[in-house]
Every structure is written in C-alpha cells, then in structure tokens.
Nucleic acid binder design. Structure first.
Lengths: 212, 212
DNA sequence: TCAAATTTTCAAAGTTTTTTGAAATTTGAA
DNA sequence: TTCAAATTTCAAAAAACTTTGAAAATTTGA
C-alpha cells in the first residue's frame, strides 16, 4: 500500500479507538473510503494484514452502522464493499446512528429519572440538573435534525462559499435576530436556577422539552 | 446512593465507554454533575465503591478534559471537585477538547497527505476523497465555532422558545436563503486542489477561530 | 524542621476487548 | 441435490485496558 494511503488508514485505525470502534473497523473503513473500486473481504484482509475472520467481523460492524454498501459483480460470487461517495450522506448516517445508539438511550434514562418524585433535597437537586441536561440535549438534537435536512445541493453551495468564518457569521446573526423576536416571557426562572440550585427547583413538572 | 441518582451514574459509566472515557471517569463525572455540593476524592471513592487510587486517576483525566473544577474549603486541606453548572459551558468545553484531540490531528494528517503529489491513479483518487473529507470537516468545524460563540443568554432564549422543530425551520430557511445569494464561482476546485494545497487553504489561518 | 494528612505513582492482578485459526455454515451453480 | 467457494462462528490466545494496594511523594500546620 502506498504510504499516502497508509497514513490515512493508520490514522483512522487509531482514531477509531477514541470513538467506539476498534482498529480493524477503522482501518477497513478508511481503506474502503479511499479505494477506487469496491473490495472484497479477501482483498481487504490482504491489504491490511488482518485475518480473514477479523475482517468479516469488522465488515459486519460497518454494515450495522450502515457505513458500507454491499454489491456483487456478475460472474463473481464474492461480496464487494464500498462506502457512499457523498461525504455529506456519510456524515448524516453517522449522526443518525449515534443519535439512535447514544442520544436516545440517554434521553430515555433521563425521562425515567425525571418522572420520579424526589425523596429529598439531594434528589430534587439532581433532577434539576438532569432537566438542564435534558433540555440541552433536546435543543442540540433538534438543531442537528434541521441541519441534516440540508440537501447535498445546498451543501455544495455552502462548501463553494468556502469555510471562512466571516461568511458564517451571517448565519449566526440571522439566528440571533430570530431569537430576539421572542417577546418578554416569564424571565426569572433561568437565572435563579443556576445560582441557587436548591431553592427554586423547576424539577420534574415543567419538562416542556417536547418529550415524545 | 438513591436509585434515582444511581441509574444516572451507572448510565454514564456505560456510555463513557462508547466515547473514549472509561467507566470510572464516566461515573465520577456523573456523580459530580448531580451532586449538590463539591465532593472530595474520598467521598467519591466511597460513593462509587472504587479504590482511592482509581478515583485519583479518574479525577486527573477529568481535569485534563477541563470538565471539573477544583476548590478548597477553609480549614480543610482536601481538594473538592465539582462540575461547571452551566450546561452550555460544559458542552462548549467538550466540543473544544474534542476539536483539539480529534479534529485537529485529523486535519493535520489530511493536509499532509494532500500535499504529496500523487504517484498514480489510485493515489489521485485517494486524494480527491481526502479533499472531500477535509472540506466537510472544515465546514462542520466552522459551524461549530460559530455556534460556540452563542452566549449563555442567547441560549436561554433559544431554550425558552422550546426545542420545537418548527421554529428552527426558520433558521434553516435563513441559512438556505443566505446560500442562494452566492453567485457563480470557479468550479473545478475540488478534484484539482490536491496539487495546490497552498492556494486558498483556509486551514492554518483564520478558521480555527473558536478553539481555546 | 517534623509528622500527619492527603494525593499520586506504579507494578501487578484482574477484566475486557480484539484477533486468530479451525471448524461450521451458507450460498449459488451445475 | 451436491460441490466447492465464500462467509460466519467460536473458543482460545493475545493484547489492551482498568483497577487495586502498597509505597512514595507532596503538602500543610505546628
């Protein structure tokens, strides 16, 4: 393998472990990502010097993440693997899977905890903290959901604009402008909560969060 | 420990391993997050039934992530730990650290690979793929940098609005409207760029904005 | 300074995860 | 259906990571 490709593959092997995936999976993915053509399991095992069975397991995991496509060639019974070419589509897939595997279970746990009635001050405080976490996760999740709706075409445009921060400032500004439109509204809440956690406790009840 | 808090703590222990942190670290963080008052290492060790030394290591790691604050109380020599209360600040910290530990090294690796001149078709293709990845990461990074600039106050407003998706649609729309404003612009870029990494490269210069 | 209190380090034990080779299963074509 | 190619499973070996207890180092107040 050329050093150029190798450094890419090795980097993903390492990085993989910072995320939930292991070296094998990371390397397989990286190899497929830069490969000109789909590869079969034997080719992958040979390129990366992993055992055939290890590759099999790795490919299964990548399929579970929906990160690889499977295809066949006429007159060849082996399975060939490749990655979607559209990097934006890949990003969306990743975000979706992580949402499903990490965010949803966390929200479920939090909802459960927030339904209990607090038995004492410690629990009341814990619930207030959990509520704050719940609200933030919900907010960020909904941003993501919106961003994910951007189609490839819009993305192209954004990319062509370049990633210079200046331009993006405008987006933020419209965002800020939008929020300012929100008229007065019971104010005190947020402030006091942070400073004196025990005392005013919005606790279980309020929960506005749109919980499904 | 009350079951309410326990389920939260245990969940973070498990989830931690999906991210790069281990059970101990996850649980310590969760415990501090919901705790009414700062805790010292012995209290943490006792609550979680971990050895004192394990807790010491865990706290060090949390400090490296800047996720815990250290403080002292008069007349007590022990160190007490707590988490920042502002969940948005916590999110920003996390994003910054991950940027530093994961995104930057990846961008550096990619820049390196993109500077090489491709030796053959396979390398040429690999570089085009890497360029696509580079551009996407840069784009997403710059969004994050912008979002991170939102101050707590704006956030409060956003949260008060509720996380209903409908409202956010408007943000997306202004975003889309904004991109439409972009006139035509040299096209070929992506495929050929590999050869001339210097040219418009936003990398090193402006874009990193937000971090530290 | 000392010594008590506290935190940190570190080698070893324990645990979990990854990787493998061999065997079992599945698959598609004849 | 059978056969051989291809894939998957699985138990065991290897590697990586976590956790611990004991000892060392540091800090503080007298």
């Amino acid at each position: 393998m050329s050093p150029l490709i190798q450094s890419f593959v090795l980097h993903f092997g390492e990085m993989g472990s910072r995320w939930g995936i292991n070296r094998t999976v990371g390397q397989i993915y990286a190899l497929l990502y830069v490969s000109e053509k789909p590869l079969n399991a034997d080719e992958i095992a040979e390129e990366l010097a992993f055992s055939r069975s290890n590759v099999s397991i790795g490919l299964k995991e990548l399929q579970a993440w929906r990160l690889v496509k499977l295809q066949h060639f006429p007159g060849d019974r082996r399975e060939y693997f490749s990655t979607p070419e559209d990097v934006w589509a890949i990003f969306r897939l990743l975000a979706e899977e992580r949402q499903k595997r990490e965010v949803e279970p966390t929200l479920t746990m939090l909802r459960g905890a927030l339904m209990e009635s607090p038995a004492n001050a410690a629990e009341r405080h814990a619930q207030a903290r959990m509520q704050a976490m719940y609200d933030l996760i919900e907010l960020i999740t909904s941003w993501f959901a919106e961003i994910q709706k951007l189609d490839a075409e819009t993305l192209q445009r954004l990319m062509k604009l370049g990633s210079r921060v200046q331009k993006l400032l405008q987006i933020t500004q419209s965002l800020a402008r939008f929020t300012h439109r929100d008229g007065g509204d019971k104010e005190a809440k947020a402030e006091s909560r942070a400073a004196r956690p025990d005392e005013d406790d919005p606790g279980a009840g309020g929960s506005e969060g749109g919980a499904r």
